[in-house]
Design a protein around this nucleic acid. Structure first.
Length: 203
DNA sequence: GCCAACGTTGGC
DNA sequence: GCCAACGTTGGC
C-alpha cells in the first residue's frame, strides 16, 4: 500500500472528511431504505405525440425526458385530485413506469425514479401555462408536482394490448380507472411486468 | 376523428 | 347532497 503524503492542507483534510461523511450518510440512507421503508411503485402517463393545449404543445415523451438536462424533469400538470393524492404519497427513490398514452400504440416505455417528493406545481401559478389554475393560491396551493429522473429507456415497449392479456395484471388501474394519469402499481404487478419485458427480449 | 367512460360543475 | 349537463381522457 502506498504511503499517504504527509503534507496535506487542512482545507483538503476538511474536504476529505466531508466527502467521507457524505458517503457514509449515503450508505446509511440506502440501508435505511432497504430495511425500514418499503419501496413503492407507480405508473405515470405522458403523451408522446404533439398536441396543442391553449396554444402550447403538451407533448412529453420518454425521449423528451432523455433530452432534458440531467435527464430529469418536474412532473407537473396533474389536475385531478385522485392523481394528485397519489403523487403526494410518492417518496424519494420510489420507481415509476413511464407510460405513453393517447398515441398510436399506448404502452410502458421505461422507468423513472422519484428524486424529489411533492412540492407545489409551479405551472398552476403561470397564466400562460395550459395548467394555470386561477383559483389556486401560493398560500394554499391546490396542485403538486414531483421531480423525476430517467432510470431506464426500454428497447421494447410493453404495450397496453399485451398487458391486457394477463390475469396477474387484471387489477391494474390502467384497465379499471383508465383515465387516471398517476397510478399505484402493486409489487407483484411491477415484477410481473419486468418479467414480461425480459421474456420479450428473448423472443 | 369518434365516442365511451368518467370526473367536475353548478342549479336546485 | 343529488344529479343532469358538460368537459376531458384516451383507446380504438
Amino acid at each position: 500500500m502506498p504511503k499517504r503524503k504527509r503534507q496535506i492542507s487542512s482545507a483538503k483534510r476538511t474536504a476529505l472528511r466531508q466527502s467521507e461523511r457524505q458517503e457514509t450518510t449515503k450508505r446509511e440512507n440506502n440501508l435505511e431504505k432497504q430495511t425500514t421503508e418499503t419501496q413503492q411503485f407507480f405508473l405515470l402517463k405522458s403523451e408522446p405525440e404533439s398536441r396543442l393545449e391553449k396554444g402550447v404543445d403538451v407533448r412529453f415523451s420518454i425521449q423528451d425526458l432523455q433530452n432534458e438536462p440531467d435527464q430529469s424533469a418536474t412532473w407537473d400538470g396533474v389536475r385531478n385530485y385522485q392523481a394528485r393524492n397519489i403523487l403526494k404519497s410518492m417518496r424519494k427513490d420510489d420507481l415509476a413506469f413511464f407510460y405513453h398514452s393517447n398515441c398510436k400504440e399506448p404502452g410502458i416505455v421505461g422507468i423513472v425514479r422519484i428524486i424529489k417528493e411533492a412540492f407545489p406545481d409551479p405551472t398552476q401559478f403561470e397564466p400562460k401555462s395550459p395548467y394555470y389554475d386561477p383559483k389556486s393560491s401560493k398560500d394554499n396551493p391546490t396542485w403538486y408536482a414531483v421531480q423525476v429522473k430517467l432510470e431506464e429507456v426500454w428497447e421494447r415497449k410493453v404495450t397496453l394490448q399485451e398487458l391486457k392479456k394477463y390475469d396477474d395484471l387484471s387489477d391494474m388501474d390502467l384497465f379499471k380507472r383508465s383515465r387516471l394519469s398517476v397510478q399505484k402499481i402493486l409489487e407483484h404487478q411491477w415484477k410481473f411486468i419486468l418479467d414480461l419485458l425480459q421474456k420479450n427480449k428473448q423472443l
